[in-house]
């Protein structure tokens, strides 16, 4: 690629790179702004220099750190997210395989039902679900934060599309070999849908990480609450402590962000092969 007419392409390449860098900086700027805010004092006069340059008020971090049991909340977030991902991947794989490969009575109806689930506005479910959670004694537990999110329409849909895109002979051949259905899914289907699984895992984890109204209502005990609840509570209680809030945003967001950025390459590759599997 680099060999093909390097001289002709260079100017356009340079322009493209410059534009890309500018856009990337624009996208990253809010992160920088949070970082600077977390290091400035609450009530300094606001000039451009004050807003854009850090003043190294590290005590903001100490204050924010003391406001909630962050390590525990963080552990909860990771645990809830990881378990939700594992559960949702399992249910998506099974259901997606069934919808994509198997033929059974009522398949169309069930699939329509699954798609309809995605369109239900979540807010209205909170009170009925709260009553259900109370009845099955799941209030203030990890279960109520994991199981209801352990099935994903997005995941089922993506896996199904992926299987639809694969040549059917693959599975026919396996059946002739006498392999069981599950074995067929595990040994042939699973490796092929792995890229889609990565994207699903990403979406499920982000959704779990993003949720706050749900855990807010369903839990009361900091021993099981995720970090976003701590953050929202901190924002509600000390709404005017911007630097402290910014500090809390930094130390709650950076670890997960770093994790994703390290893995980002895999996600893009995953999406690239997934998008190949998406056939309207």
């Amino acid at each position: 690629m680099t060999l093909a007419g390097p001289t002709a392409r260079r100017p356009r390449g340079a322009l493209r790179r410059t534009v890309a860098v500018l856009i990337a900086l624009a996208f990253l700027f809010p992160f920088y702004y949070v970082l600077v805010t977390s290091l400035n004092s609450a009530s300094q006069s606001s000039t451009l220099a004050d807003l854009l340059l850090p003043h190294w008020h590290w005590e903001n971090y100490a204050r924010a750190w003391a406001a909630a049991p962050w390590p525990r909340l963080f552990l909860n977030t990771v645990l809830i997210g990881a378990c939700t991902v594992v559960l949702a991947l399992a249910t998506s794989l099974l259901a997606g395989f069934a919808f994509g490969v198997m033929r059974f009575r009522g398949r169309g109806l069930l699939f329509a039902l699954v798609m309809a689930v995605m369109m239900v506005p979540g807010t209205v479910l909170i009170i009925p679900d709260y009553i259900i959670a109370t009845d099955i004694h799941w209030l203030d537990t990890y279960w109520i934060q994991i199981v209801p999110w352990g099935a994903s329409v997005f995941g089922i849909f993506l896996v199904r599309q992926f299987f639809l895109g694969l040549p059917a002979e693959l599975f026919d051949a396996a059946e002739l070999d006498g392999a069981g259905r599950f074995r067929m899914l595990w040994s042939i289907g699973m490796p092929l849908v792995r890229p889609a699984m990565l994207i699903i895992a990403l979406q499920i984890f982000l959704a779990s990480w993003n949720s706050f109204l749900w855990p807010f209502i369903m839990t009361q005990d900091p021993n099981v609450q995720p970090v976003e609840v701590g953050l929202a509570a901190f924002a509600g209680a000390d709404g005017t402590d911007y630097p402290g809030l910014a500090a809390a945003v930094v130390f709650t967001t950076v670890p997960v962000l770093a994790f994703f950025l390290v893995l980002q390459r895999h996600f893009v590759t995953g999406a690239m092969s997934t998008a190949g599997g998406v056939r309207g």
């Binding site: 645990l79 990881a82 378990c83 594992v86 203030d140 537990t141 990890y142 279960w143 994991i146 005990d221 021993n223 099981v224």
Partner: peptide
């Protein structure tokens, strides 16, 4: 094994958080 381990940790954690209540 991973799933089992996760479930065990989960069970342990929820047990310790609910024991106080």
């Amino acid at each position: 094994a991973t799933v089992l381990a996760a479930a065990t940790v989960l069970g342990a954690l929820s047990a310790c958080s609910s024991s106080s209540k």
